[in-house]
């Protein structure tokens, strides 16, 4: 064995020491180690999950496509809403037994308080959601601006404080502002759901730096990027930043093929998480040759 080969093997073995049974790039020939093929478990809101994909249930072309998208995504948590009935006596099955369809998927339900503008509204809606959906989980939304649907940090904190006292597991939809996030934690929240971009905009992560700071300053708080995700690449980026999960709806529901897009997001979120755990290399300004040239003749 040449010196060069020994050097190479030493270097590669240092790089892949966590996977001694195989070498990088061997996956075509060898089965992926089972612990890489199976996502690791994680905890949120008192439950243990494997999927890090939270999927919304609104705006799909049909209930059947919604069901298929949920299955294709691999999600274990779906978001649901409440609607005030528009007319007296409207049958509860007016939406084609939407709730029955969702329950049949076996996923955990995360009801939201969409449409609320004040803490009082959100608290009342959360209380109703707990009874209707039989869960203490609540995605707390209190919007402060009609055009951007930006969360109102002040009403959000007020609502969160009260709901935590009432025994809810509050998932606050919030901005990426560090201090307002800290106030939500002070109010008793154990989870944060910072926005990536305005709801339904598909802009992706408009301020990845802020999300990176949240991750660095709040290393032990589950962070779920919620809203604004457009493509699986956005979800991968969020996961590579070390966030714990991604919640999205429109990017799947409004895709030309929602079922395939649900699968694409599911794979992307897995890939992004795996990349984060593996450790993405540092960027450099200048080229760094990947092919070893030491000991090679300059001219052939």
């Amino acid at each position: 064995m040449s010196t060069l080969q020994r050097d190479w093997e030493t270097e590669r073995s240092a790089q892949v020491k966590e996977e001694p049974a195989g070498r990088a790039g061997d996956t075509e020939q060898n089965a992926l180690p089972s612990r890489l093929a199976t996502p690791t478990t994680w905890q949120i809101g008192g439950r243990t999950l494997t999927s890090r994909f939270f999927l919304g249930t609104a705006g799909y072309p049909s209930p059947a496509i919604l069901q298929q998208a949920i299955a294709a995504s691999g999600t274990q948590v779906v978001t649901v809403g409440l609607r005030r009935q528009l007319a007296q006596g409207t049958p509860a099955s007016a939406d084609g037994d939407f709730f029955g369809i969702i329950k049949a998927t076996g996923t955990h339900l995360l009801p939201n308080t969409a449409g609320c503008r004040t803490a009082r509204e959100a608290i009342t809606l959360a209380q109703m959601a707990r009874e209707l959906f039989d869960t203490t989980w609540i995605k707390l939304e209190v919007v402060g601006d009609e055009h951007t649907l930006q969360p109102d940090p002040f009403e959000l904190v007020d609502a969160a404080r009260q709901l935590v006292k009432e025994g809810f597991d509050v998932f606050p939809y919030c901005t990426d502002d560090l201090v307002s996030c800290q106030r939500l934690l002070d109010a008793g929240c154990k989870i944060l759901m910072p926005w990536g971009a305005p709801i339904g905009s598909g802009q992706g992560l408009v301020n990845p730096g802020a999300l990176r700071i949240l991750r660095a300053r709040l290393p032990d708080v589950p962070l779920i990027v919620d809203a604004g995700i457009g493509s699986p690449a956005d979800a991968v980026q969020a996961m590579e930043l070390g966030l714990d999960g991604v919640l999205l709806n429109t990017a799947v529901a409004k895709a030309l093929n929602p079922v395939r897009m649900a699968r694409a997001f599911g794979l992307g979120i897995q890939a992004g998480r795996l990349a984060f755990e593996a450790g993405v290399m540092a960027q450099q300004d200048m080229a760094v040759a990947s092919t070893p040239v030491a000991g090679h003749p300059i001219l052939l």
């Binding site: 649901v80 809403g81 609607r83 709730f99 009801p111 939201n112 969409a114």
Partner: peptide, 10 residues
């Protein structure tokens, strides 16, 4: 009286 029922949500 207000009544609320489950619907789809994001």
């Amino acid at each position: 009286i207000l009544t609320f029922q489950p619907i789809e949500g994001g």
